[in-house]
Design a protein around this nucleic acid. Sequence first.
RNA 1: GUGAGCGUAGCUCAGCGGGUAGAGCUCUGGAUUGUGGCUCCAGCGGCCGGGGGUUCAAAUCCCCUCGCUCACCCCA
Length: 435
Amino acid sequence: MAESLINNLPGTRDLLPEELVAWHVVEDCARRIFRQYGFLEIRTPIIEPTELFARGIGEDTDIVGKEMYTFLDRGNRSVTLRPEATASVVRAYIQNALYRGSGITKLFYFGPMFRYEKKQKGRWRQFYQAGVEVFGPDHPAIDAEVIEMALRFTESLGVEASLQINSIGCRRCRPPYLEILRRRLQGEISGLCEDCRRRAHTNSLRVFDCKVETCQPIILNLPSIADNLCSECSEHFSRVKKHLDDAGVAYETVPGLVRGLDYYVRTAFEIVSRELGAQNTIIGGGRYDGLSEVIGGPPVKAIGFAVGLDRLAMILPEEKRRSGVWRPDLFIAYKGEAAFRRALLLARDIRRRERSCMLDFSDASLKSQMRLANKINAAHVLIVGDDELSRDTYTLKRMHDSRQWEVTPPELTEYLASCADQGEGQPRSGPRRIE
RNA sequence: GUGAGCGUAGCUCAGCGGGUAGAGCUCUGGAUUGUGGCUCCAGCGGCCGGGGGUUCAAAUCCCCUCGCUCACCCCA
């Protein structure tokens, strides 16, 4: 079906109503928890000058080197679809002088990001992230708070995930460490696999990620960055861990955890799931104290993380997903022209009373209207026909137990008011899996 | 960018030692003149991804192409 205009671009996709149920559960949960910690929403453009990302994320990163959607606009400016949001949020923070005021600014965002990569499980060219950024403090406790919040988020979604943390030092202590590491790898080069030999030069820290058996003994003996931090970074890292311990947060210290963006310093962390494929990172984040200055702003301490919404929606447990399924309170089935007109008036009235209702417009038989009501999982069906019209009543049927009875208009109003919030999270009475 | 696998009905797939397409689900209607889910019956629905070649004959064999998927790299 490689035809014409009826095809989306590779790596993009339509999110259909059924799939979006899981997304809404995830998004609602994120907003709820972010607010508990005092985060406020910010929305920035999804398109920015290329230079913002190139400088902010780092010219040598994969993202900037080969994954950006970059093009010239009609004004001959080089612009880029954002590959991530942190650089934009920092830009907005500086541009709008949000640093004036209290010493701490907490922001969160939601939105699409774009990276020109080959599609894979859990990876798209247009994908969605939520994220948070804290500007101001660099106290270890705020690092721990942010990490703890991320974990609480995945936990309350019922998603199984584990936390990995590391400190990758600062501009002062990282370069000397990398030098030491490179030299050691050079000495062991003959024992390394082909990939690792390449990594030894290009991205030494990645050697830690190698899964090749023969590399393991060498990797285990490599100096870790955590043991080569400057005293300030070392102190910071151990205090972050102490705060995590105090909070009862379980974590694994992973020496090879480095993150792919240049701006990270000190605390780096990831939350990973076993339920995904090769792309198993659900949340990634860390501290980025120098980013503001890199893009021309004042010195700003900052830490944050990004959540992969696509991946979370993908592994959301079924019971959580089910809790977000919507159903109309009422379906109005009618027979005859007079009843149809009555149904329209009634629908208007019901909606004004904050109840949801639907009806059929195809002049279908009562039977097929009932089928439709069942298919859309309506909680009740209201039947309006000649009998009812002549008596000025309706027949109200409760779908889950098939009980039905006659009601007067005021009784209907009262009944609907009494079953408040029945619209969501109720067990389905309709077509169910039978197991 | 590299490698592997796969493209047949709206969906999931069978058919692939050539002989002018099949199942399940979905959908529509009926069995039940005004009543859903279950069951039964019937029906709708396919240039078998596209192009070329071999052959009397190709969904089936060969070549090219496009698309999808997974993996490497890297990341959410």
